[in-house]
Amino acid sequence: MKVLQFTPPAPKEDSVIVDEDFLTHFYNHFHRHKQLQITLILKGKGTLMVGNYSQAFRPNEVYILGPNQPHMFKSEPGHFTNPRLGNAHAIHIFFDLERIPKAFLALPEMESISRFLDLIQNGLQLPAEHTEYVAKILKSLEDKTNLDRLLAVIQLFQYFSKEVKGWKSLQTGFADYSFSDSDGMRMNDVFQYTLDHYAEPITLDKIADIAHITPHAFCKYFKKHTRKTYNTFLNEIRINEACKRIINSSNDGISSIAYSTGFNSATNFNRVFRKTTGMSPSDYIREYKSK
């Protein structure tokens, strides 16, 4: 439950670690590790939380998470109610940037890669048009030798730095992820409770009780660590879930989705949806169906 260093299992001599998950659900605890992480989602859906940011994730998406960046891939409830091996399938690449000598990154040939690595500290999502090409490379790493694997990752960084435009930032305004161990446990408990109970009325007293502090202290604490109010965060979780339901269901009406994701009225849902996504639910449906 702590946001502590997580060490991917691999021989010490391996600079690039390839870990393929083929599980009933993703590792759904808020955690971090010193390695940069590249993740290709092959199967499974849910909510990705990176620091104070959250969004839906789905198959055929690639994410880059910075070193020591707290994160969690929270599987959809269906992964748990109907657990089957392979519900969650992903390839994770771990690479410790501290093992790259500074003199090497200072080489003229490494200039673009060095600039790119400075950008990943807060997390990035690869634009969809590059997924097929990058996925092919990530899938091939398992069969490469140590040196070939390292060279392939460096070439991948070169591709990221030169060819990819329009990265999606996994950040909402703050870059300090230096949670202490006690803060990590507290934030993890708050995130987990919110993800599990977003469809229910969550009062300030209740969520403050989960964090084991007073409501007044909780408001200051949450705003300090996330740069947003808890109510804003809760609404983002609810809207993320509403977007998934809109995409995955052709029968549920807007009002039904609004009430099932924790909103007390369709009017309030429409207002929050527009504020969060920049469009109305009906516009969102039309845009999705046009793709």
Rank of each mutant, 00 (worst) to 15 (best):
K45C: 11
G78M: 07
Y230F: 15
D196Y: 09
H71Q: 01
G278E: 12
A242M: 06
S54N: 13
F95C: 02
S265M: 11
N146C: 12
K74I: 08
T39H: 04
T145L: 12
L126N: 00
S75V: 11
N231S: 15
H29Q: 12
T229C: 07
E236R: 14
P77N: 07
T229A: 03
F22S: 03
H197L: 04
I202A: 04
V272T: 14
M279V: 14
L195F: 07
L4S: 06
K165L: 11
Q37P: 01
D183G: 04
A211D: 02
R271M: 02
Y230G: 08
R58Y: 09
R271F: 12
I213E: 05
M49R: 09
E129Y: 03
G278C: 00
L119C: 14
F263T: 01
E287H: 14
E287C: 13
Y53K: 02
P59S: 03
W167D: 14
T203G: 08
L141E: 11
N68L: 13
K275Q: 08
Y177A: 05
T172Y: 05
Q125M: 15
V272M: 03
S250V: 10
I91C: 00
K206C: 03
K220S: 04
G166W: 14
K162P: 01
A56V: 02
N68G: 04
Y27H: 07
I137A: 07
S255N: 10
K162V: 15
N188P: 03
Q55T: 13
E76F: 03
L119M: 13
V190I: 14
A258Y: 08
A103E: 15
F22E: 06
V153F: 01
K223C: 01
Y53L: 02
P83G: 13
T267W: 01
Y133I: 10
E129Q: 07
E98R: 14
A211K: 10
H29V: 13
G253F: 07
Y133W: 04
Y27K: 12
Y193D: 10
D176E: 05
N235M: 11
F6S: 10
V134Q: 12
N82A: 08
H71G: 01
N68Q: 11
D148A: 10
L117C: 08
G262R: 11
L23G: 00
H33N: 11
W167F: 15
L147H: 12
M1Y: 09
P77Q: 00
N28D: 15
N122T: 13
K102W: 04
Q155F: 10
P77A: 09
K34S: 00
E236V: 08
Q192S: 12
I246H: 07
A258G: 08
P201Y: 11
A90R: 13
F95Y: 14
R84G: 05
S180H: 06
N122F: 02
V62N: 04
C243V: 05
K144R: 15
N87F: 10
T229N: 02
M1D: 10
N188V: 00
R58G: 10
F94D: 08
R186V: 07
S265I: 03
